[in-house]
């Protein structure tokens, strides 16, 4: 199986017991995210909608390339790839 690292953004870390980098197995992004979701309850629905598509306020990158420029969730992974999840954040540091 292909081992990859998923970088968890701060807003989702409460769901991974604080883990910032999680190593999962999976031959494509869908499988890797599925493995992540199986390990941490409630995480997957923050990234994917009920139809299993990427939510519009989240971007997922393999290396530095956006999944939207690759084969989406079917993008195949190589051993050691790094998957980054980046959600939109609003903050500028008010009150």
């Amino acid at each position: 199986m292909t081992e990859t690292t998923v970088r968890i953004p701060t807003p989702l870390r409460p769901l991974t017991d604080g883990a910032a980098d999680v190593v999962v197995e999976g031959s494509d992004v869908a499988a890797a995210l599925g493995a992540l979701g199986a390990r941490y309850t409630g995480l997957l629905e923050r990234v994917l909608d009920e139809d299993g598509a990427l939510r519009p306020f989240v971007n997922v990158f393999v290396g530095s390339t956006n999944l939207r420029e690759l084969d989406g969730l079917r993008t195949e992974l190589r051993e050691g790839d790094v998957i980054s999840i980046l959600p939109a954040v609003a903050g500028g540091g008010p009150a």
């Binding site: 807003p11 306020f57 989240v58 959600p87 939109a88 954040v89 609003a90 903050g91 500028g92 008010p94």
Partner: peptide
Amino acid sequence: PPPELAPSC
């Protein structure tokens, strides 16, 4: 994102 997923600072 919906509010429950996007808490402010």
